[in-house]
Design a protein around this nucleic acid. Sequence first.
RNA 1: AGGCGCGUAGCUCAGUUGGUUAGAGCGCUACCUUGACAUGGUAGAGGUCACCAGUUCGAAUCUGGUCGUGCCUACCA
Length: 923
Amino acid sequence: MEKTYQPQQLEANWYKTWEERGYFAPQGNGDPYCIVIPPPNVTGRLHMGHGFQHAIMDALTRYHRMLGCQTLWQVGTDHAGIATQMVVERQLNAAGTSRQEIGREDFVKKVWEWKDESGDIITQQLRRLGSSLDWSRERFTMDEGLSKVVEKVFIDLYNEDLIYRGNRLVNWDPKLLTAISDLEVVSEEEDGSMWHFRYPIAESDEHLVIATTRPETLLGDSAVAVHPEDPRYTHLVGKFVDLPLCGRRIPIIADDYVDPEFGTGCVKITPAHDFNDYEVGKRHDLEIINILTKQASINDEAPEAYRGLDRFEARKKIVEDIEELGLLEKIEPHKLKVPRGDRSGVVIEPYLTHQWYVAVQSLADPAIKAVENGDIEFVPKNWENTYFAWMRNIQDWCISRQLWWGHRIPAWYDENDKVYVGADEASVRAAHGLGDDIQLRQDEDVLDTWFSSALWTFSTLGWPDETEFFDKFHPTNVLVTGFDIIFFWVARMIMMTLKFTGQIPFKKVYITGLVRDENGQKMSKSKGNILDPIDLIDGISIEDLLAKRTADMMQPQLKQKIEKATKASFPDGIAAYGTDALRFTFYSLASTGRDIKFDLGRTEGYRNFCNKIWNASRYVLMNMEGKSVSDAAHHAPHFSPADRWITSRFESTAKQIEECMESYRFDIAAQTLQEFVWNEYCDWYVELSKPVLWDDEANPEAAAAARFVLLSILEKSLRLMHPFMPYITEEVWQRIAPLLGINGDSIMLQPFPIPNADNLDAQAEESIEWIKGVIVGVRNIRGEMDISPAKTINVFLRSENQIDKQRLDEARVFLQKLAKLNSIDWLEPDAPAPTAATQLHGQLEILVPMAGLIDVAAEQARLDKEIAKLEGGIKAVGGKLGNAKFVDNAPEAVVAKEREKLAEMESAVTALRTKREELAALA
RNA sequence: AGGCGCGUAGCUCAGUUGGUUAGAGCGCUACCUUGACAUGGUAGAGGUCACCAGUUCGAAUCUGGUCGUGCCUACCA
């Protein structure tokens, strides 16, 4: 074995082996256990969120597989309509052409080529994480089977009037030229202005003042509204204003949508370009005047002077023209929320178009109930509130997109725009008796990618035609995902799955936090603070990292800033930590909070932990050279307290891990494992085994027993850790298991350790605690008194408690080795003791004779410190016990515990004071 | 505006139903290459648990408020 753990080669080898041997497919006949992957974008790249969520899903998957469940982690990708189309369009533009130029058919062909070319990047990256996904069942939202489900669902919903086509305002992206759903709009506060314009009142010399943040929409105004009870304006209601620049006369209406306190209390109403105005317009039967083209420039409905201008140019010109007319009252700086497309970043226009919608209310009701009645549970539970809040106020879902990449809407129109929905043109013709003389054209639009994602749990499992897997694995057990897509995906899956299968899609939803950078910032390409999980596994130089973070920048002016920040955070680049260390970092950070600041220091710590495991294994293997072990029954009679202790500690650990898995507390699991392996197995048990193994000849049976325990606890620990650290555990297990006569092909198919309370051994734990206490006591004196660790020393032990004497007999060899002692002498309570540095362990006095070793003043200081500490404790506990209310009210056990504590501290402080006085007399 | 969350050691975070003299890792200090490991070992320093008030025998933990901070939803013409 190498002296340090080298993850690089063995990770790739093991993953390949597991995959080739088909270990990821469900097997056996245990209970089914299933997780579906949140489908990543097929042409995308792995990010930290994937890393985090896959670490968790893989731990759950491997855990249940080892528990003997038939376990399926269903893999697949989605087609990411807008994102993918944008990438391919950019490629076309770079090549000097465009999608319009090459046409729909060729464009879609190009996208498929791009998918084939780049689609396996992300799936290869998922493999690097060790994810035990069943690749034999890989699905893609655009593949034939899934597309058929999408089609069926669309048609069925249409036939039930749950999908309809409507002409209304949508969120329109004037750059991508498509509608998007309200979830795809991000509104952030930006600096803008509030323009106050005077609108002349018709047939009078008066005017009123409206306030607007979007002057250009003036061209589409069809009324001015005031509050019905606003005394300033009641006399104007029913009159008209002459709309400047347009030569139109529009009514002044009363509507309590208007907030009299805000602005001037007069609102211009532009029904075609504002969601609220649209509603006002409907109530008052106002004209809807669309003044924008799809690209958001001014169209021919507007006065000639403005036609063809971009919306922002038009704004400028209109303000100038208003000012020229003397109608500009004032301009005030104003902060407002500007809606932008989450993909394009441009300002979204409310725009009147025909789109397809899902009427979600009737789907939402059962989906709400499923969570209310506990059929589906969120972990942590408080996310249910977020879900309810959205679901109870849900809006119809705009599902059509003006894109070419996606599931084309199965709807055809005749010459009169009458719509027919069906699987294909032939079946539409047949169903509606349309002869060949009637021209039909298919709807140009495709469906929102989330529409197909909403069907993911059942479409990937073969519903509705091949239901073997569906019958076995649906509902799935748990969905692991980020809170940012509860609305986009989780809620919609629940609605659609209930509707079509009558089942919930999953029993639990484990919501992870969002991985942020070392400063708590959200990671994003534009901020240049992305960490690539693969770079943490393989390492990356600072040069490559800088190049990666500043490549293809949307905002090149940020380059210097990004470089500076990157150099500050990673002056030497990033070391190669390996997959297991990265995964363990994710577990350790997977607590219940919603932000996860990624801390590379922890990854380094867990890399070191891997090395610790590696070296402990080396130690065990070295000690097995030329030796063999039998079974537990054979060795048990020769077990030392240390052997029984570590066995007992293992059981407690296994029990805790079981609880952590049930409660999804991977952070506690990680800490528990590290604590056991490092602080108990390595720090103590391995050390305690040394005197026994090195004195093999004196007691060969004891040495053999120790070897057996070293080996078997290591082997069991590897199985306990395997769901979290698949690679190192496999590699080491392959070397260790045969020595125990275990013949398995892979640790991942071995049983997970089931806690066995029979192995708990309180007596052994007490014995070892005693030994540890004595050793730590001596080390403490050495450390504080500056005695070289190389120097062997003599100690005396003294106690009134005979148990201490008995314990010394069984512990002598351990103490000698671990505390580096020359002699250990027992003193009876009344025997005279040499002048010594003293440390107490319970009633036991640990005495290190001072002659030539210890400075009196230093020992006095040390004792003073110890006494002061005890006095603090006595004061606190004594105060408690002196309080009658505490003694009367607190549970008896609590009071008894406090009394015991007090008694111990008092006797300790007495003993130390005596020592202190003896030293004082000496000085 | 409403909702949710957070504020514990220099940093990143645990802290179960109130019962500890408040924990871990990293970092820091001192010493040490001893036959698994310097990606290591040993010992140690470091916190009035944001603040205030309340409930209680007892509060990091429960209640109310204040301050700071982050996010989500709705919306402001």
